[in-house]
Design a protein around this nucleic acid. Structure first.
Lengths: 127, 127
DNA sequence: AACCGATATGCATCGTTGTACATATCCATT
DNA sequence: AATGGATATGTACAACGATGCATATCGGTT
């Protein structure tokens, strides 16, 4: 053995599900919402995240369909070309997810220290 | 709108990472280890999980390489054809992960109730 | 020495997901 | 009515992991 096993750390992926799909909502879409909220448009938000408008738009649509609620209000035309802002529900989802996410990650860190870090930090030649 | 939005529930995916790869260890490999521990062979374990020996074997190898530790001890030949059992480290990883996982999931449930369930349970026509 | 069932791997393929490109539509302002 | 920048969608292709198939190897028991 003796492969390089640099610091092992806990990772997590959180999402909302209706039982099946899984791509309902998660950190990616949360970041997108946050970016839309800041930028005021899906296009700018997507560019900022380096993700391409096509996917960003589709992500929002799929989330809305899955949740059965509008999370953004979009307008087209005009001198600015159009714009997108979060609905009240969208904003609540944004902030709620942020708090949820932080709480879970904090718990994860604690649980990792408690149950795994000791085991994983022990050097392999102790075995 | 008005799409079907059956009960929305929180989902989670936990894993260990060295910063990059991500496929180091997670629930899938944990289940595999547990199955190997119960069955005494990779093949039986894989079949039981409906996953094919090829992948199971590769998963174990990748985990061992990534962690730099042996998690199983394999033997070949003999009347039984061969067998696989967990190393001491493997068993500790198995039980440690189980406790870790339960702790995090419990925290997740609580955080979900606290930060999101109220928002998501509200009917859409309230908006 | 022959056997049998499990380990050990390569490889070709398939399905899902993301990325890129193309194009149509909208509409307040000028 | 012409403009411009963003929304709205289709489609095709690349990337990556999962799945299946084939095959070689091992070695205690009989």
């Amino acid at each position: 053995m003796k492969k390089k096993s640099g610091r092992v750390s806990p990772g997590i992926r959180l999402y909302l599900s209706d039982g099946g799909s899984e791509g309902m909502f998660g950190d990616g879409k949360w970041r997108l919402l946050r970016s839309v909220d800041e930028e005021g448009s899906i296009r700018k938000a997507a560019e900022k995240l380096g993700r391409g408008y096509r996917k960003a738009w589709g992500d929002i649509k799929r989330t809305e369909n899955a949740l059965g609620r509008k999370i953004v209000r979009k307008t087209r035309g005009g001198p600015t070309g159009g714009a997108t802002e979060l609905t009240e529900f969208g904003r609540e989802l944004l902030s709620g997810w942020q708090r949820y996410r932080e709480a879970v990650m904090e718990g994860m860190e604690g649980a990792f220290e408690l149950h795994l870090s000791g085991l994983l930090e022990r050097s392999e030649d102790e075995y």
